[in-house]
């Protein structure tokens, strides 16, 4: 069942290819707006690079969240999943994992390219990639709670952003400061360990909260 849900998610994503590409394109676009707005001076952009990439990744994730459950909720597929013998939160966790593979992972893969375009110092690359690798799943996990709670609201995107963005603050702080520290020659172990700890916490609690949120919307009269 779990494997089939995973497969189904990818199939759905393949059928809606254009929607899938949007957050990634958005991510690249936002990042390339900054040199245009601030000027293309390497000295100016290099210290800002990690912050810009992280904010862009955050916005791109927010953009993709609205579609995480909506289609399946409207089709009644989520209701079927809820009724199946597999615990619902596990299926929700699989859906979140699939969401991250399709939106978060491309951002991680693309980030070195953007870091290069923003003149990030080479010592920072590793901590940026590791940070994004640990951080983007947290964005998907916390975002899933918001997506589950707003699944019934038409144009719920604004509410979703308002609700979720404050919760992203710790991820943003730890993620964006790690490359800055690495550029100063300090090993940013603290930040990356914090991100890992938050990932563990989010992976444990977020699927439960998201499945509870979906249940409320499925059974709410």
């Amino acid at each position: 069942m779990i494997g089939r849900v995973f497969h189904y998610e990818f199939l759905q994503a393949y059928r809606r290819r254009s929607e899938l590409v949007t957050p990634v394109v958005f991510f690249v676009l936002v990042c390339s707006m900054f040199p245009l707005a601030l000027g293309s001076v390497a000295d100016l952009l290099a210290p800002l690079a990690s912050g810009v990439i992280w904010v862009a990744a955050l916005l791109a994730t927010l953009l993709s969240l609205d579609q995480m459950f909506r289609q399946d909720f409207d089709d009644g597929i989520l209701e079927q999943m809820e009724l199946s013998e597999v615990p619902f939160y596990q299926l929700v966790a699989i859906k979140i994992l699939a969401h991250w593979c399709l939106t978060g992972l491309p951002l991680v893969v693309l980030s070195p390219l953007l870091a290069m375009m923003l003149f990030m110092p080479s010592e920072s690359y590793l901590s940026l990639i590791v940070g994004l690798f640990l951080g983007t799943p947290i964005l998907s996990l916390i975002g899933a709670i918001g997506a589950a709670l707003t699944v019934k609201i038409r144009r719920g995107n604004v509410v979703l952003s308002l609700l979720i963005m404050p919760l992203y603050v710790p991820v943003l702080i730890f993620g964006a400061t790690a490359p800055v520290m690495a550029a100063q020659g300090i090993m940013p172990a603290a930040q990356l360990l914090w991100l890992a700890a938050m990932l563990v916490l989010a992976a444990t609690l977020a699927p439960l909260a998201a499945s509870l949120g979906l249940r409320i919307n499925i059974y709410g009269s």
Partner: peptide, 15 residues
């Protein structure tokens, strides 16, 4: 603000 706007945008009271 997020909590208030969430509450206001869901129509069904119980949900």
């Amino acid at each position: 603000l997020g909590i208030i706007s969430l509450h206001q945008s869901i129509e069904n009271r119980d949900t």
